[in-house]
């Protein structure tokens, strides 16, 4: 039988700054970010970042490409993880697509102008 007070572990010990070695303080890691980037002329590029793990990015990309009739690719970024890139401004289409397929609306963040 163990008595808590006799344990060697001190629950009241100072742990130091809890945020000290946490790189993403105040980050929005759990959001799905939909961004837009300008290319030359009036061309644009839409990126989707932060897709939850339970979704297969490859399959999603295929669905996007078919649904939006655009090309796209899957980029694996070291820091950001898998990112779906689509040609053209597909931001609103992506967000409606995701919402229709029961992704929580509050986790989707649409950026850009």
């Amino acid at each position: 039988m163990s008595v808590q007070n006799l344990n060697s572990f001190d629950p009241f010990a100072d742990e130091g700054d809890p945020l000290a070695d946490n790189q993403d303080v105040g980050s929005q890691a759990d959001y799905i970010h939909i961004r837009i980037q300008q290319r030359n002329g009036r061309k644009t590029l839409t990126t989707l970042q932060g897709l939850p793990k339970q979704y297969d990015a490859k399959k999603l990309l295929k669905a996007f490409k078919k649904e939006f009739a655009c090309n796209g690719t899957l980029v694996d970024d070291e820091k950001m993880g898998p990112v779906i890139q689509l040609q053209g401004d597909q931001r609103s289409k992506i967000s409606t697509f995701l919402i229709e397929h029961e992704v929580d609306k509050s986790t989707i963040k649409v950026h850009g102008f």
């Binding site: 303080v25 980050s27 929005q28 980037q37 300008q38 590029l45 970042q49 980029v75």
Partner: peptide, 11 residues
């Protein structure tokens, strides 16, 4: 929230 620029594609 801290301002954090996300993934920026190669353009």
């Amino acid at each position: 929230n801290a301002i954090k620029s996300g993934f920026v594609a190669q353009v």
